[in-house]
């Protein structure tokens, strides 16, 4: 068997068998669900009902909004948790044992990245299925095949971005203690930086700019666009002004100044970010002392 694939399988097994790792990778997601159930859903529905007449479709739309945020957060926390294996290997010197075999450090590092991608993809896929079941259970509809393929595309894009984004930060830490601090920081801030805890329109303008410049938040935007498009049309029934004001306030679309950021721009921004974080990580990796 190829030694790279062999390493990825090994990391994967370790992740799956470490219940704490799996749990913590889903912790932020659980927090989001709780926050949503307690108050986010209610305040949002109240706000929308002031714009249009109340219908059950509003609830579905708001649920989809939450699911979009959840999915993008999930790709980040799951890939990050997967890097926990790399940090543990480094701190406990398991890395040294690997390096006594005829493999290169680069290959070893690559195996952790691939593992993070697979873990992120698998958990996000699982999350997507759960979200679909949830949406249907509370009165929504099944996704159409077209919607599913678009969602899968964004999941892959989002997991790829998260893998390299987290790789960059993981390369900066060397101990499990500092890694858990990093996880806490990313896990806490990601909900704000993707405009999931608080809608984009409710934060000061400079914070809005920060969120719009945060590449991962663009995956949230794409998820929202795919999941909510039909519901928005139903809820606002051609009331273009109300729809547009809702979309901007809740981050279904970004508006930089008065320029509308289209989905194509979001896609481009995500792709560029993947390239930039890959290059940054490679640069950082080449500069790191060759420790084990």
């Amino acid at each position: 068997m190829n030694s790279l694939l062999n390493l990825v399988i090994r990391h994967n097994k370790l992740f799956r068998r470490d219940r704490m790792l799996v749990f913590f990778s889903l912790l932020t997601v659980i927090i989001v669900i709780l926050l949503y159930a307690i108050f986010i859903q209610k305040t949002q529905i109240d706000a929308i009902e002031q714009l249009v007449t109340a219908t059950p479709d509003i609830k579905n739309m708001v649920n989809e909004w939450m699911v979009a945020g959840l999915l993008s957060i999930m790709t980040v926390t799951s890939t990050l948790a997967a890097y926990g294996i790399a940090i543990k290997d480094m701190e406990t010197k398991v890395l040294a044992d690997f390096l006594t075999a005829p493999i290169t450090r680069a290959k070893l590092q690559l195996s952790y990245v691939i593992n993070a991608f697979f873990i992120g993809f698998a958990l996000s896929l699982f999350g997507l299925i759960c979200c679909q079941l949830f949406l249907v259970a509370v009165g929504g509809e099944w996704f159409s095949p077209g919607k599913i393929s678009m969602l899968l595309g964004v999941v892959i894009l989002s997991v790829t971005l998260s893998s390299v984004f987290n790789l960059f930060f993981t390369l900066l830490v060397t101990t499990q203690t500092s890694f858990s601090t990093l996880s806490t920081i990313i896990g806490t801030s990601i909900g704000f930086l993707c405009g999931v805890y608080v809608p984009l329109g409710s934060v000061p303008e400079f914070v809005q700019k920060i969120i719009m410049l945060f590449p991962i938040s663009h995956t949230t935007v794409l998820f929202r666009e795919i999941l909510m498009r039909e519901s928005i049309d139903t809820v606002f029934k051609g009331n273009a002004e109300a729809a547009s004001s809702y979309e901007v306030h809740f981050g279904v679309h970004y508006e930089w100044g008065s320029t509308l950021i289209t989905n194509s721009y979001s896609l481009l921004f995500i792709t560029l970010s993947i390239i930039v974080f890959t290059l940054l990580s490679l640069f950082l990796y080449s500069r790191l002392p060759k420790r084990f």
């Binding site: 090994r10 097994k13 044992d97 005829p102």
Partner: peptide
């Protein structure tokens, strides 16, 4: 081959899994 001071195999894997996973690194 090296036996280190501390044990460096994976706690959560079985004996066989551990050895085969490391063994596959030698091509």
């Amino acid at each position: 081959g090296i036996v280190f001071q501390q044990s460096l195999l994976d706690e959560k894997l079985s004996v066989k899994e551990n050895i085969l996973h490391r063994g596959r690194l030698y091509g």
